[in-house]
Structures are given as C-alpha cells and as structure tokens.
C-alpha cells in the first residue's frame, strides 16, 4: 500500500452561524487521483482553502508529507509542493499569458532584488529555460498562439486552462484542482484527463473537485463524497456513484 501524502484530520471551520467544514477527515495517497464530489455548499472549496492555507482551521490537523502545515502560510505550502487552482478563475488579467506562466517556477534568482544586478547572466539563463517550458505546456493546452495576449482577454474556459498550465510550471508534488473542467470544451477536457493521468505516472498526486461526474469518474482512482461539511463516503467511482445519497445530490432531490 502506498504511503499517504495528505492527511486531513478532524478539521473544523465555522463562519458565523454556518459550520462549513465539520470534523472532516481525508487521506490522499501518494500518486493517487482523488475526486472530491458533493452538492453545492457541501464545503468542498472551503476544505480546499483550509488545505492550502487561505483559511485557518478552528481545530484539527493537516499533514503534508508528514509535516504539519496548518500554521504554514500559503506561499510556504506552495513551496513544499502543494499548488492549487481556483474555482472562480484568477487569471492575472493585465499580464500576458506567457508572463502568467513564467511567474510559476519557484526559486527564481531574479525574484530577489539584488540578483537583478548581481546575477543577470544566471537570470537570463533561467528565463530562457522557463520560457521553453512555458511554451511546451501552452502548446499542450492548445494555447501557444495566445501567448502574447493579455490573460484578461481570454475566455472563461481558456482562463481555466491557463490556471492549470500555470500551476504545472512549479512542478508541484500535489495539485489541487477546483473544477478544472468547467467551461472547457469536451475534446480538450478528455485530453486533460489523459494528461492528468500521465502526470500521475510521473509521480504527481491530485485532489480534484468536479461536478462533471462522467469526467471525474474517468480520471479518479477514488471518489470522496462530501455532504454538510463532512466526507461521508469514500470508494471507487462505481461504488460511490451507486450510493443513493450521491444520486440525490446530483439527480435532483437534494434535501
């Protein structure tokens, strides 16, 4: 059995009167692709925000690679290899697509102010490498021709793609994708599924929130079903889909 990479233990988050995440526990194994499903308002995105450090949990523990990260600021969590995308896309509007991408790599010498004059040679070498990689990834996402456009001028689906492409520039250990397929055309979505699986083969771990059940079934090893702030069901996609509570959440009913 593979070792776990992310462990969420009895995490709780309350907003005013709403208990958004309630003693929620989740384990993501190394090199697994885990789908996180559940009705709107179940607490999936809040859980993402807790895992990545945008919110601080009221109680509970979060471990990444056996390190406790609940007190770590977001940027440090990203540096140790945990990178996310956002449900409502956050393109850096007034920057070009290529600049969005080149922002990604971590440990860039040129991000330290003195190096700009002290290590200009090293910086331009790093920039060339980053650019090459950026163009490669953009090419995969069929966005190469848009590299010099402002990111703000892209369509909603393209912004989604750009976000995922940008996260890949960091070489994350784990990628948390918040509705990566929403607004992406079906052909490309299928291509992304294959790509995600390829990346997993290379060692990457995924936690994916997605409402598109056929797609998330296709891509995930296991599904975790969340309801009212808790993960109430885990299993293979086939098992989870059969459960009446899941059917209720996705096929009408609701309460």
């Amino acid at each position: 059995m593979k070792h776990s990479l992310l462990e969420v233990k009895e995490v709780k988050k309350q907003f005013e009167s709403i208990l958004a995440v309630d003693d929620c526990s989740l384990i993501v194994k190394k090199q697994a692709i885990t789908g996180l499903v559940g009705a709107n308002g179940a607490g999936k995105t809040t859980l993402f925000n807790l895992i990545t450090g945008y919110y601080k949990a009221d109680s509970g523990k979060i471990l990444f690679n056996d390190i406790r990260i609940d007190d770590m600021p977001t940027f440090k969590r990203a540096r140790i290899g945990m990178v996310r995308t956002f449900q409502i896309t956050k393109a850096l509007s007034r920057m070009t697509v290529l600049d969005n991408m080149m922002l990604g790599p971590k440990g860039q010498s040129g991000e330290k102010i003195w190096n700009i004059w002290l290590k200009s040679g090293k910086i331009s070498k790093e920039e060339d490498m980053a650019k090459e990689k950026a163009l490669e990834i953009l090419d995969f996402f069929n966005m190469l021709h848009m590299k010099d456009e402002y990111a703000g001028a892209l369509s909603g689906g393209q912004k989604k793609l750009l976000e995922m492409a940008r996260s890949l520039m960091i070489d994350p250990i784990m990628l948390l994708l918040d509705e990566p397929f929403a607004g992406v055309n079906p052909t490309l979505a299928k291509k992304m599924v294959i790509y995600i699986k390829e990346l997993r083969e290379k060692g990457m771990t995924f936690l994916i929130i997605e409402h598109d059940i056929p797609l998330i079934t296709k891509v995930s090893d296991t599904l975790s079903f969340m309801s009212q702030g808790k993960i109430i069901l885990e299993g293979t996609p086939e098992e989870v889909k059969k459960d009446p509570r899941v059917r209720d959440a996705y096929l009408g009913g609701g309460d």
Binding site: F75, A78, K90, L92, L103, S109, E111, I113, I116, I170
Partner: peptide, 27 residues
C-alpha cells in the same frame, strides 16, 4: 530594470491578484 525582471513580474502578479501570487509560492 526592476520592473522588467522576474522581481517585477511578481509585483505585477500581486497587483492583479495576490491570492494567485501566494498560491504560486511568492511571499
């Protein structure tokens, strides 16, 4: 020189959306 460097790129990303900058590991 500063604003056209990777350092300047981080500044612009903060201007556009600082949540993205932190998601990408920038302090």
């Amino acid at each position: 020189q500063l604003v056209h460097s990777p350092w300047g790129r981080v500044l612009k990303s903060i201007r556009e959306d600082e949540d993205v900058a932190s998601a990408l590991g920038k302090n």
